[in-house]
Nucleic acid binder design. Structure first.
Length: 593
RNA sequence: GGUUCCGUAGCUCAGUUGGAUAGAGCAACAGCCUUCUAAGCUGUGGGUCACGCGUUCGAGCCGCGUCGGAAUCACCA
């Protein structure tokens, strides 16, 4: 039973003894704020109607009843209408023993629910950038958090591997590529393909400009530029699976995947299922048929299929082109249907930027109108854009922050910083690299994950690379320190793996135990809110609490053996919980740094 | 114009279900390395939670409105 449940039971019992039956959820119990004395607090205002007494008198009455009847509650105090209850030190000691013994501490019991989370979803025409990093980190972290909450999680990646944008880089490579390959140039495959995507745009613009000089309007010129017409022809050839085009497509996508794999690995993300749009883009047409039959959709004179959502405050939406080909929405209807059917999903989460809020609003509404109950179990985990100090990232202005470059920068800075501080002097080159990678990536990941997903965030390179304060490296540093203490204890042959002593804890130690005890609820709250930021805040608080404790108490030099053991055990648990909460953020934690 | 989201300290951001005197970090200033890692610790200053009205015993959080910002409203994905 969790502490919250225990307190809740105790409070209900006393309140009911005094005032008669009370409906569940009527009483508000919360953790006591730091500035007040006590562990848990009952807000008595909702009870005043029943007690017919002042807030203070009511609180006192309940407090007295609880303290006299429950051994674990040591004392209480009343401030205004708030009843603060203090648990006994022996209660916390027992609680600590329990969690230290629990191998799966923080891992919730299996819920039996299966949740698919789709994230990343890259286009295969250019390398990943900062925006993708936010997406990948969020998706991976939320998946970890949902797992810790006992759900079965399927991580899915839907690769946008077809379409006109892919043909653009293919065409440009064919014309201007001189047979370049990742091997011949030493370039990462995704960067090489991206280079030709840019190359296409350059030529396209030049052609448009020329046509406009010849008197065409901008609109005409954009439609008539030979190179874009050729790209469109190429797309048709691809759809007809013409060997030359199809083969080139496979080759170039292969390069991109090799490149993406490197980036994914550096980010520490992975997938259980990879879907390719080239294999799913025809899905959804049967759903369109179904909608027509049910009268939810309608066909226009030109043959295209639409749904009218104006009554719901939205617009009319195209679902099938007049030539019978599908659009984005058609595909998403189809893939959502297939996923729920094939995997017996309870929930489907899409990690997609907020520029697609409208799309998902429509998607859910259409499915609902078709009568699919599971439409309510689709969640769009919408996240805000990442902006730079100079403003938005614009590929045209070359202000896009490339994912690989950024990763390399972070790791390099971590290394420089470590060298400067002399932290890694007695490490092998290999160890030093591994640690610098963990720290650099930890800084990047924490910096991005600590902000609420739905908010537009500012990415200031200077600040992200700061390793002081509320940062990943601060938390990693705390962990490294604890590991160092444990190493020294081992060298000194101090035993600390026995049972926890039933000795008096200091207030600072109880604070630490309380924080450790909070871990499961922090994870649960983060899961309910799809907010890795909440786990991050918890880990930071815990690390801070430890650092305060670290300064005020010598852990190894305590003379009483039982106290020393108790402290070492406590500190060991802190390290363990830091490790697991950072794992929920996909952040590795070094043992020294 | 419609829809959705955001607005909290100079800056970047926290603030699970409405609860007490709104919190961190950065930046600024003042201390602390003879002590288990100073990527650290302690302290000081800094706020009309955009604004107004409402609901409530109680609002940063809920409702309505106003202002400011973002996204979106394609036979693109």
């Amino acid at each position: 039973m969790s502490i919250e449940d225990f307190i809740s039971k105790v409070v209900y019992r006393s309140a009911e003894a005094l005032y008669g039956a009370i409906e569940e959820g009527q009483l508000q119990i919360q953790k006591t704020r730091k500035e007040f004395e006590g562990d848990y607090t009952l807000v008595t205002f909702p009870l005043l109607r029943r007690s017919r007494k002042s807030p203070e008198a009511t609180a006192t009455e309940i407090g007295e009843h609880i303290v006299s009847s429950v051994a674990e509650i040591e004392s209480f105090n009343v401030i205004k209408g708030f009843l603060n209850l203090t648990l006994s030190a022996s209660f916390w000691a027992a609680r600590f023993t329990e969690m230290a013994a629990d191998v799966h501490y923080g891992q919730a019991a299996a819920t039996g629910r299966t949740i698919m989370i789709e994230y990343s979803s890259p286009n295969t025409n250019k390398p990943l950038h900062l925006g993708h990093i936010r997406n990948n980190l969020l998706g991976y972290s939320v998946a970890q958090i949902l797992k810790a909450n006992g759900h079965k999680v399927i991580k899915a990646n839907l690769v946008n591997d077809r379409g006109i944008h892919i043909c653009k880089s293919m065409l440009a490579w064919q014309r201007f590529g001189h047979g370049e390959t990742p091997a011949s140039t030493g370039m990462k495959g995704d960067h090489l393909v991206g280079k030709y995507y840019v190359e296409f745009d350059k030529h396209y613009k030049a052609e448009v400009k020329e046509l406009m000089a010849q008197g065409q309007s901008e609109e005409e010129a954009k439609k008539n530029a030979p190179i874009i017409c050729d790209a469109q022809a190429m797309l048709r050839q691809w759809e007809a699976k013409e060997p030359a085009v199809y083969g080139l497509w496979q080759t170039m996508n292969g390069w991109v995947y090799e490149g993406f794999d490197v980036t994914y690995k550096a980010l520490g993300v992975d997938f259980d299922k990879v879907y390719y749009e080239s294999q799913t883009y025809l899905l959804g047409k049967s759903i369109v048929e179904e909608g027509l039959q049910k009268g939810v959709f309608y066909r226009r004179d030109d043959g295209s299929v639409w749904i009218d959502l104006t009554a719901d405050g939205l617009d009319e939406k195209l679902l099938l082109r007049n030539d019978g080909t599908s659009v984005y929405m058609t595909q998403d209807l189809g893939t959502a249907f297939r996923r729920f059917e094939d995997n017996k999903l309870d929930d489907l989460i899409y990690v997609v930027g907020n520029e697609q809020n409208y799309h998902f609003q429509v998607l859910k509404l259409v499915l609902k109108k078709l009568g699919y109950a599971w439409s309510d179990h689709i969640t769009h985990l919408s996240y805000g854009m990442v902006e730079l100090p100079e403003g938005k990232m614009k590929s045209r202005e070359g202000t896009v922050v490339d994912a690989d470059d950024l990763i390399a920068d972070m790791v390099r800075t971590a290394r420089e910083m470590s060298d400067e501080l002399g932290k890694l002097n007695d490490c092998s080159e290999q160890e030093a690299n591994a640690i610098s990678t963990m720290v650099g990536m930890g800084a990047l990941k924490y910096f991005i994950l600590k902000v609420d997903p739905k908010k537009t965030m500012l990415f200031d390179p200077r600040e992200s690379i700061d390793f002081n304060g509320n940062t990943g490296p601060f938390i990693q540093y705390t962990h490294a320190r604890i590991c160092s203490i444990l190493r020294k204890a081992q060298q000194a042959d101090v035993e600390f793996d026995g049972s926890v002593m039933a000795i008096a804890y200091l207030p600072e130690e109880i604070e630490l135990v309380k924080m450790l005890a909070d871990y499961p609820s922090a994870v649960a709250a983060a899961g309910a809110n799809f907010a890795p930021s909440m786990v991050g805040a918890y880990a930071y608080e815990l690390a801070k609490q430890f650092n305060g404790y670290y300064h005020d108490h010598s852990i190894l030099k305590e003379e009483r053996a039982d106290v020393r053991r108790m402290r070492l055990q406590l500190v060991q648990q802190v390290a363990r919980v830091i490790r697991s909460s950072m794992a929920l953020l996909g952040i590795e934690v070094p043992e020294r740094m």
